[in-house]
Design a protein around this nucleic acid. Structure first.
Length: 488
RNA sequence: GGUCCUGUGGCCGAGUGGCUAGGCAGUGGUCUGCAAAACCAUCUACAGCGGUUCGAAUCCGCUCGGGACCUCCA
């Protein structure tokens, strides 16, 4: 079953059977956030998608080294000579040290990812912690004649590289088209070609973040850190490199060119790209302001939402779409997912209480294979979830005595569903009744209401229910007594 | 302008040649003092036009619409 996993590889444009370089081990690198402002939900979607991928690889029994960087060195705002890096710009705006900005938003990022129940990566290296490695790579590429110094900065020579390699294979671009597409750019006198990209940049006097190098007091180019850190922790060749679609070009294309120039081999076997989370049909973006922050989603403190949603609901919402599809964010869609999420979790909970019979009337083995068939087909979580809902229907039928399961089947279903729902999809129960004092108080109130109902004093019993509902506590009369829950 | 992706029922969202996706909403039912919830059942699709094929949502062409990238962005 393990060897059936197929992954869509951006490099070939096809789903390929996944074969790791080392048996039962996987090296995976994912481009992490630039920590100069709060991560928005779109950023989170990518990291949640790769969290699911990481979790599924672990579930299949792979030993995974998952490396996700923190970009804290700051990128150029543009490629012109007077560019200012984003982190120092933000530092000026907030009157903080650059590293203070980095610390603040890194902490914030970790807190948000924890709320989404994302596992931390195995290694989370920072760009500023790998300046030496980056300088070494620049030097080596210069030695090989594929980069040149110009006025204290170093640029990668794309056209020379292209003579013996294919620049643009990942993003399916031809170098001629790229050149013709950059016709009207000026102010790039330092570069031999507009396609060339910076490996090292000389710092302007106003630039705060700077390090000594053989070429100038400066800072590394935008694409270099990922090459340095993936090479250091995963080797010259590793299994999976991931990131958002928007990084495909130029970021990942440049990474391939750099790494291949540096080591002589193609760095990555499987390139994976997650699609955008859109808002109002457009990609979420920090620069355009078309975005939503996780905390706004959780609290509902935004004009976009009538109420807040629990992180687990948001995670489930994302899992209901395939990672390579665009997903549009809306209140209606979230609301639908919230109901579905509770239905699924109730089913998983009910599974624990089912009784068994001699024989099954349901094809549990077939159902379980359908779970894995979905996941092995390029991590198709929406189909997995559809199949999990089939399982919920069966669970309900067994509960009603309309179907039966053997002991073996029940145990199989239980362990598989728990593994997929909790370990792979990374969902969790939303625990709202952990306040023991509230629970005690509710016990008393419901006891009083029960007395009223037994005396057919509907006026009192309905008053209690309605007032509690107004206070955000839903009371539901069931066959086996009354239950209550705090509205999320 | 160039490269690539995409258009599914009221909404979200799977599905790449023939067989019920699924969730939400709607409708009918079960349960209930009522309500809510829950459960069961069920209706509404494949942007348009043309082509290939015994057969297409699925392949090809054209038209129209949406998006991503080409500048930092998950």
């Amino acid at each position: 079953m393990q060897n059936q996993l197929k992954i869509y590889n951006t490099l070939t444009g096809e789903k390929e059977v996944f074969q790791s370089i080392l048996e039962n081990q996987v090296g995976m690198y994912v481009c992490g956030p630039t920590v100069y402002s709060d991560v928005h939900l779109g950023n989170c979607r990518t990291f949640i998608s790769f969290d699911m991928i990481y979790r599924y690889l672990l579930h299949l029994g792979y030993k995974v080294r998952y490396v996700r960087n923190i970009t804290d060195a700051g990128h150029l705002e543009n490629d012109a000579d007077e560019g200012e890096d984003k982190i120092s710009k933000k530092a000026r705006l907030e009157s903080l040290e650059p590293m203070e900005i980095v610390q603040k938003y890194t902490t914030g990022f970790h807190e948000i990812m924890a709320k989404f129940n994302a596992l931390p990566p195995s290694i989370e290296p920072t760009a500023t912690g790998h300046i030496i490695e980056q300088i070494e790579i620049v030097q080596e590429i210069i030695n090989k004649g594929l980069a040149y110094e110009s006025n204290g900065s170093v640029y990668f020579d794309v056209e020379t590289y292209n003579q013996e390699n294919d620049y643009g294979t990942l993003s399916k671009r031809k170098i001629e088209d790229l050149i013709s597409g950059t016709r009207d750019l000026d102010g790039q006198s330092e570069k031999r070609s507009p396609l060339d990209f910076a490996l090292w940049k000389k710092a302007s006097p106003s630039h705060i973040m700077r390090w000594p190098s053989p070429w100038s007091l400066g800072f590394p180019g935008w694409h270099l850190e990922c090459t340095a850190m993936s090479h250091k922790y995963l080797g010259a060749q590793f299994d999976i490199h991931g990131g958002g679609m928007d990084l495909k070009f130029p970021h990942h294309e440049c990474e391939i060119a750099q790494a291949k120039s540096f080591t002589g081999t193609n760095p990555v076997n499987y390139w994976m790209h997650t699609n955008m989370l859109t808002l109002n049909g457009k990609k979420m973006s920090k620069s355009t302001g078309n975005n939503l922050l996780p905390d706004e989603l959780f609290s509902g403190d935004t004009t976009l939402l009538e109420k807040g949603f629990h992180p687990m609901v948001a995670r489930f919402f994302m899992m209901q779409a395939h990672y390579r599809s665009e997903l549009d964010f809306s209140f209606e869609a979230l609301t639908a997912s919230e109901k579905g999420f509770h239905k699924l979790m109730q089913g998983v909970k009910d599974l624990e209480l089912l009784s068994t019979k001699e024989a099954s009337t349901e094809d549990v083995d077939g159902l379980i294979s359908s779970f894995y068939a979905a996941m092995n087909d390029d991590f198709n979580t929406p189909v997995l979830i559809a199949q999990l809902f089939e399982a919920v229907t069966i669970i309900n039928k067994v509960k009603d005595g309309k179907s039966s399961l053997s002991k073996d089947d029940l145990n199989n279903l239980k362990s598989t569903m728990n593994a997929l729902v909790f370990d792979v999809l990374g969902l969790n129960y939303i625990d709202v009744s952990d306040d023991s004092k509230l629970s005690s108080a509710m016990e008393i109130i419901l006891e009083l209401r029960k007395n009223a109902r037994e005396n057919k004093n509907w006026e009192i019993s309905d008053l209690i229910r309605d007032k509690l509902n107004e206070a955000g506590i839903a009371v539901k009369d069931g066959k086996d007594g009354t239950s209550w829950s705090v509205n999320s």
